[in-house]
Write a protein that binds this DNA or RNA. Structure first.
Lengths: 126, 126
DNA sequence: TAACTAATGGCAATTAATTGCCATTAATGC
DNA sequence: GCATTAATGGCAATTAATTGCCATTAGTTA
């Protein structure tokens, strides 16, 4: 069976996730990892992210409006939410959760998950 | 200058919003209004929704993952959130808001808006 | 009712995001 | 180092959503 190779492209992509510490879009990954690997192809980013997802190392973050972001599965493992800066279009992790959502439900509805996205200006844009 | 005509297609689309009482996707509008107007074209739905938006009668609802939904501006005017049924893929209005979000913010961040999407099973799917 | 023209709707064209293809590169095991 | 083959990356192709085009339909006003 096939063995996964540890390429420097994949390493750069993993490093990008770790140093960014926030959810990244495909383009952001391409940009950040591309600083290490010149001429990093977007095609490679798509493949790497897919593989990291399949390996359970990275989780997808569906955001309202914009394109999908990806974050380390270790981060996704603990319940949290996100902040979207409308100026720089970056997403950040928000720790904590308002809670008490069940009482907002119409009767008969069954709550399984929830997603909260705060938006405004991040520290560097404010 | 041009006068907007009240066509039966546009009426059916407006009626669809009012009777549905929940955010609708382009396809849902097409389906619902299409029950009144046979052979209603999707092209017409796109144009009508665009015009209703420009007239301020309809607002766009960005949802995580899926395609955009649209709701009556009168509904959007009062702060509320949404519930997404993972079984039938419909969205519903949720009245109320958990509040207390400001204390979740990292320091230096400025909160302007927020969006909450509950998900699970709606009454008829549960 | 007639004239005017906004609106419709079917299909082709566009757009943006993602993937297939494949020759080339380079990581791995011996 | 060498052989093997997974991975890369550039471009073309695909996909899905939306829009342009335009002949036809049908509100609107006089």
């Amino acid at each position: 069976m096939s063995v996964q190779r540890q390429t420097k492209q994949l390493q750069a992509i993993q490093t990008a996730f770790e140093t960014a510490g926030r959810p990244l879009s495909i383009d952001e990954i391409h940009e950040l990892a591309g600083r290490d690997i010149e001429s990093l192809g977007v095609r490679t980013v798509y493949r790497a992210v897919r593989r990291l997802q399949e390996n359970g190392d990275v989780s997808i973050v569906n955001v309202p409006g914009g394109s999908d972001r990806y974050e380390l599965a270790s981060v996704a493992a603990e319940h949290h939410h996100h902040f979207h800066c409308t100026a720089c279009d970056r997403f950040f992790d928000i720790h904590g959760c308002p809670g008490g959502l069940k009482k907002l439900l119409p009767k008969g509805f069954k709550l399984e998950h929830h997603e909260l996205t705060l938006s405004g200006l991040c520290e560097s844009c404010a």
